[in-house]
Simulated scan of single mutants.
Amino acid sequence: MSLLYFRTACALALCVAVTGCVTAPAEAPTQQLEVHTILGHREVTGVGCVLSNAAGRWFVVAPGRVTVERSRSPLTIDCARDGTGSAREVADAHATSFFDTDRLIGNIIVSAGGDGYVNPYDGSGVAYQSTLTVLMRPAAPRAGAGDSPAPGNVVF
């Protein structure tokens, strides 16, 4: 009977040793995002947007798609169109679900559940919302050359 326990213990030790040598393939360090800009309940086209996080900066003309590098830091979206309006919004990175079917099966088979650790310094294990809707503020009216001065002011 002790020989059966010994063989079982050796088999378990061998499984643990082998799984420590194998690593699961890493997820892509980039993510494709779709950016839309809204002003007054309507989509505005031709708006230039700069997206930035700790990993870099990217430019897109909304509506459009852009590929960004994942990071644990928030993604800042600055959009503007001359004469139309501007916006600044922040999208937080959220953890990708551990319970995605592909990741769960691969995690159990390849690393025996040890893939739960996420490096805090890179973008692995996090993602941004795939569609970003930016709400713009209308541009302030500009004082033109045809505007008359305020009453009571004398202009020489």
Rank of each mutant, 00 (worst) to 15 (best):
M1K: 13
L3I: 06
L4Y: 08
Y5Q: 06
F6Y: 11
R7Q: 08
R7E: 10
L12I: 07
V18R: 01
V18K: 00
T19H: 01
P25M: 01
P25A: 03
A26G: 07
A26F: 02
E27D: 15
E27Y: 08
T30F: 08
T30C: 03
Q31C: 06
Q31R: 02
Q32A: 13
Q32H: 06
V35M: 10
V35W: 00
T37R: 02
L39M: 11
R42P: 00
T45M: 09
T45P: 04
G46L: 07
V47C: 03
G48P: 02
C49V: 08
V50R: 07
V50Y: 02
S52C: 01
N53S: 09
A54R: 07
A55C: 03
W58L: 02
V60C: 00
V61G: 04
R65C: 09
R65P: 01
R65I: 11
V66P: 06
V66C: 05
V66F: 07
T67V: 12
T67D: 09
V68G: 03
R70C: 00
R70D: 05
S71W: 05
S73Y: 04
P74Q: 02
P74W: 03
L75N: 00
I77K: 00
D78C: 10
D78W: 12
A80G: 09
G83F: 01
T84P: 00
S86R: 12
A87F: 02
R88C: 10
R88S: 15
R88L: 15
R88D: 13
E89Q: 08
A95Q: 13
A95T: 12
T96V: 15
T96D: 13
T96W: 06
T96S: 11
S97K: 10
F98N: 09
D102H: 09
R103L: 12
G106F: 02
N107A: 05
I108C: 05
I108Q: 10
I109T: 04
V110K: 01
V110S: 04
S111R: 06
G114F: 11
G116N: 13
V118K: 14
N119F: 12
Y128C: 04
Y128Q: 06
Q129D: 14
Q129A: 13
S130D: 15
T133S: 15
T133Y: 07
V134H: 01
L135P: 02
L135A: 12
M136S: 05
M136G: 06
A140S: 15
P141F: 05
P141L: 05
P141V: 11
A145K: 15
S148Y: 04
G152P: 14
G152W: 09
V154N: 15
V155A: 09
V155Q: 07
F156H: 15
F156D: 14
